[in-house]
């Protein structure tokens, strides 16, 4: 009897070696199928253009770097250098804006018992759920009347106003976990809220701020709708808009160049992810950020 019970008791590693192997086989094949398009894109970036559509395998028989050179200047008048520089400027400013404004707001929500806090907090949470399309047109009219269209301002200024409430929520959760005694002790020593925030809370919240920074960068880097609406002259285009222009305008057969530029456009995102992997995955687990 006791042996039966023992056999049925679930163990951390699943029972039989055969079964474990089966799981690994399943997972590896799923991972392979899922990653194949990405790997194929990577391989195609190093192939002569005329081979791209014919070759379905990952093997590159005639490797070349030519795609990166002719892809870089493939869009008339502007090079991808401009697009990358624009994307970088916008993304870095978006990171700064989000980290500063969201952590200020989050500190207030998490730690300052001011009047009306509950109401504001509820409103802030409400904006997380708000579909962006409701704001699209009035924001466009607002920024247009300010003369901001065809500048980076509509893409950057809202970030300094903590409008991506997801990050406020993430940081609130984090600030709440920091023991109160530290701030309490500092206050007895005569510290104001500004110093408590800057000298105690910020250093302790570095992990949550790094998560915010990484996701801000990735979202801003990948953003397509806002640049599509606000950036009208080619010199201000970001990488995604440049790519869309490439794919539409080309209609050509410079597939190699297209894949090379697509690959380059993904590298910063993948780099950020690998660098902050642990923090990002924890961030997703706790708040559901994409």
């Amino acid at each position: 009897m006791s042996t039966v019970v023992a056999r049925r008791r679930p163990r951390r590693p699943v029972g039989h070696a055969a079964q474990r192997t089966l799981i690994h086989v399943g997972l590896v094949s799923a991972a392979f199928v899922m990653s194949y398009p990405l790997l194929w894109m990577g391989a195609s970036a190093f192939r002569p253009s005329e081979e791209v559509l014919i070759e379905d395998s990952l093997w590159v028989s005639n490797p070349t770097l030519e795609n990166f050179i002719n892809g870089w200047t493939s869009v008339a008048q502007t090079s991808f250098g401009t697009f990358f520089a624009n994307s970088l400027i916008i993304s870095v400013l978006a990171v700064m804006g989000n980290v500063i404004s969201c952590s200020l707001a989050a500190y207030a929500f998490a730690r300052l018992p001011f009047r009306g806090r509950r109401v504001w907090f509820a409103l802030m949470i409400g904006t997380i759920m708000l579909p962006y399309h409701v704001l699209l047109i009035p924001q466009y009219l607002l920024f247009n009347s300010l003369g901001w269209v065809d500048t980076f301002l509509p893409l950057v200024v809202p970030r300094f106003l903590a409008t991506e409430a997801f990050f406020v929520f993430l940081l609130v959760q984090f600030f709440r976990l920091i023991p109160k005694d530290l701030a309490e002790a500092a206050r007895i020593d005569g510290c104001g809220h500004a110093r408590i925030f800057a000298q105690i809370m910020v250093p302790l919240a570095v992990p949550a701020m790094a998560t915010t920074a990484a996701f801000s960068f990735i979202w801003s880097w990948n953003d397509f709708l806002n640049p599509l609406i606000y950036l009208t002259s080619q010199a201000t285009y970001t990488v995604p808009i440049g790519l869309a222009l490439f794919v539409d305008a080309s209609g050509t057969s410079n597939y190699g160049g297209l894949f090379a530029m697509s690959l380059l456009s993904l590298l910063p995102v993948i780099g950020f992810f690998l660098a902050f992997q642990r923090l990002l995955l924890d961030g997703i687990s706790t708040t559901g950020i994409k």
């Binding site: 500063i100 404004s101 969201c102 200020l104 707001a105 500190y107 207030a108 929500f109 300052l112 018992p113 001011f114 009047r115 806090r117 504001w120 409103l123 802030m124 904006t127 708000l130 704001l135 924001q139 607002l142 809202p158 300094f160 106003l161 903590a162 409008t163 406020v168 104001g192 809220h193 500004a194 925030f197």
Partner: peptide, 20 residues
Amino acid sequence: STLAGYLFLSPWLVGFFGVT
């Protein structure tokens, strides 16, 4: 702390009313 709260919240408040 109410004053500090609203000061810390001011960027978000501007964003909440102005952009949302």
